[in-house]
Simulated scan of single mutants.
Amino acid sequence: MTRLIVAAGGGGDAVAAAMLDAALYGADQHPTVILTYAWDRLLIDPVPGPRGPDDFTGLEQITPVVWAVPAGARPVAPAGSMLPRLASELPYTFALIDPRHGVEGLTRQLEELVRHFSPVSIDLLDVGGDILARGDEPTLKSPLADAVTLAACCQVNASIRLLVAGPGLDGELPLDDDLQGVLGPLVHNFTADDVEPVGSVLEWHPSEVTGMLAATARGVRGVCEVRDAGLPVALTDVGPTVHEVDLDEALSRNRLARSILETASLNDVEAHSREVCGYSEIDSERSKAARLLERSATELDPVATLSTALSRLDAFESLARSRGVTHTTFRRLTEALGLNGSQRARLRQLLISRRPEQYAAPLWRIP
């Protein structure tokens, strides 16, 4: 008997799914399969968009159209992925969402998993709540993955529970009366103990929203600045909560999800995203990847660049304080200090070694 958790967005939702499973189901001994995208954004993967099975070696077939990513799998260069390392450190089967055939393809993957495992429960988990976006919100940046998983789950002949963890933490939907009015019953309130099963993963995984979810579960409160644009996100008592949301109501709100119900390719999904939301986030990744490639061709020695970035840290923190910021992520620091994604881990290690009192795991505290 197996449980199935569908991670609605990118790799961070897969880590949150492991937290959720341990918190809600840890004592029942049912094995859990986490169905997730391999979409680690340009900080880890220089190739825009999500990865499919052809982008890996060493996958293990579960059904004719579903593959697991074990610890021994490897992304095919130049692609990158956190999933093999995640599989090596957490006791879960990570099944790969293949987005190439749109919502129709993911619906088939879900149906095959249901037939294969006959799961005792199926949860669709989104961290932040952007799965509830209408599509025209000015702060919405990454609606595509959530819309695809929502549209597919609504078409599967099985009981699926939609859970939203950390409402508002992704900074894409404000935690206003509209969003709060959609949230259903409180299912769980994450605590520091719930973070422990994924604590080691959070030391290296780059997900900002799951990092903030874990930080709020550990009691961190304040304002966290995220992403290259420096978006402020409030860390409040709502941060570690998990709410159930009616699946049909979510679909009725999400215009993009409704528009892509019959799509048969990722290109079709992107076309609808441009029409409904005014953009495709993969287009944004393509543009950013081109800029990063141009910059890397003329980049200075990495050690010299890191040293130069450290000299700008105090100035960054001073400006952040003036904006009311109390915490930030290492992704934000990496980009704000002019470093590339490959230098994030080195920057983090260096900062923690020099100023350990500012490490509010897994965030950086602005003193």
Rank of each mutant, 00 (worst) to 15 (best):
D146K: 01
G10V: 11
A152I: 07
M212T: 09
L347C: 12
G219Q: 14
P206F: 07
G211V: 03
S142G: 01
T298A: 07
A17R: 13
Y37P: 00
G239Y: 09
A214E: 03
T32R: 15
P232I: 07
T2Q: 11
G168D: 08
H205R: 10
A217E: 15
A38E: 09
D193G: 12
E335K: 07
T328V: 12
L293H: 13
V164N: 09
A95W: 07
D40M: 12
G199I: 03
D176C: 12
N254V: 10
L4K: 06
G11Q: 04
V201S: 05
L173V: 14
C277D: 07
T32C: 14
G129Q: 04
P356G: 12
V156W: 10
P75N: 00
G102V: 05
H188E: 06
P138T: 11
R74N: 04
R100P: 00
E60A: 13
A320T: 14
M82H: 08
V6A: 11
A133V: 01
G10S: 07
A297H: 10
C224G: 02
A229R: 08
V69M: 10
A27Q: 04
V303Y: 09
A304G: 00
V33D: 13
Q343T: 03
T63M: 02
T241G: 00
Y92C: 04
Q358E: 12
D123Q: 11
E137Y: 00
L319I: 14
L24K: 08
D268T: 01
D146C: 05
G184L: 06
R134L: 08
I131M: 09
I160F: 06
